[in-house]
Design a protein around this nucleic acid. Structure first.
Lengths: 229, 229
DNA sequence: TCTAAATTGTACTATTTCGTTAATTTGTCA
DNA sequence: TGACAAATTAACGAAATAGTACAATTTAGA
């Protein structure tokens, strides 16, 4: 029993300040980890309460119930990703370079946001009911389609892109490889070894995805040769 | 109290035969649905017990515990998929046709086995620990790689495939699109509408995947033109 | 037919886990 | 300053859920 007042071990708990936004943000941060790790049904409110500065009651105070918290987590990570997509500028690159850049950026972004990937996987297990319920999400994600649409337009105008190139299809194709690369790493490695998940393997796959997309869109494109290992 | 002996409502329950395999199979069937729908932590043993012919006691009698049951479900669906892969024969097709057929078959197989897809998603959420723990799985899944390897060898020998075509990479590329198509349908549709999930949209995507793979492998391949909608 | 082994049903327990009740502390404004 | 609303805590309640004890029933084989 020392220093009960002068030097509290935890400032928030012994002599807390009112700071709702910080409390909410802290809960969200911990909850994101928990739900990403164990899913909605596997995630434990008590575990989140233990790891956050705030108490369990505060979770219910601010987020209503477990589902409300999960939905907030989902909206939060989607919003964050949108911002990073918005930050990507390719207007000044010529069409082939711009498309290449978009593929690279998408591939890398997925690798760098494993928590987001896991939450999307989990949300798909739930048939996207929480995503649909959200009001802020629908108009999200437009930005990447707009960028692809602009690049396609310019490429067609320059006579170097096929005229049937479709932005939405392209986004789907690019996303599918980029997403799967992260989402199914565990089972793929277990079944087939991790040769594609070494740094060299990842670099090769990344180049393959670029080649596939360009091969589909750019007239007369020939994939770059990759040295057989 | 009628007909206590002559006409039992349920033959198994009132006058059962010793038929462990049938009981196990029935439990597995119900458990597959339950775990695929709600995941490992979300799946309910009581729910499975309610839907199966057998009693809850039998689940523990045969499978030990919840995790043992989940693992059996996983091994069962993986084995089933392997069998369907083995059944696919492309040795008699020329290389381009054979590769096309493999892509088509993979794409369609994924569409037709949504329960398997969901269980793989769930297993990835669990970092594949149950798949790794399994003894029957590792040597599974070789068959598809062998088939792709054979096609690649023949294509290269005929001088029509690029020499850097790699079976494992190809399988990854083909699987990624095919898997994502099913696994992320819910969130993708929510974000971008379901134009890619109409019958026509699916046919277009399927053709795109074929074109991408052939474009990567076949020397001088030009994608087929798809009429803009 | 008799007996041991296999199989099943009932009822129960211990624990986990979501969510709440009621009281305490803090900030603010009259 | 003091009253009042907002923020926060600790302890508790109720339902759900995995797993079990044990007796009862059925089968298969000597």
């Amino acid at each position: 029993m020392v220093d009960t007042k002068k030097k509290p071990a935890n400032p928030r708990k012994s002599r807390w300040k009112q700071d709702p936004d910080a409390v909410k943000a802290d809960i969200l941060r911990v909850a994101t980890d928990e739900f990403a790790a164990h899913g909605l049904s596997g995630g434990r409110i008590d575990e989140i309460a233990k790891k956050t500065e705030a108490s369990k009651r505060m979770i219910y105070y601010y987020f209503g119930d477990k589902e409300g918290l999960y939905q907030s987590v989902l909206e939060n990570v989607y919003s964050t990703l949108r911002e990073s997509e918005d930050a990507l500028k390719v207007e000044n690159l010529e069409p082939v370079a711009a498309l290449t850049r978009l593929v690279e950026a998408t591939f890398d972004a997925h690798v760098n946001t494993p928590l987001f990937i896991r939450l999307v996987m989990i949300e798909n297990i739930h048939n996207a009911v929480y995503l649909r319920r959200s009001e802020i999400i629908p108009q999200l994600n437009r930005s990447i389609i707009d960028k692809l649409g602009d690049v396609c337009r310019r490429g067609k105008a320059a006579g170097i892109f096929r005229c049937d190139a479709d932005p939405l299809e392209l986004h789907w194709l690019i996303s599918s490889s980029s997403f799967y690369n992260v989402s199914n790493r565990a089972t793929f490695s277990t079944s087939f070894g991790d040769s594609l998940y070494t740094p060299e393997g990842q670099a090769r796959l990344r180049q393959r995805v670029i080649d596939m997309v360009l091969g589909l869109v750019v007239i007369g494109y020939e994939p770059r040769q990759i040295a057989a290992e």
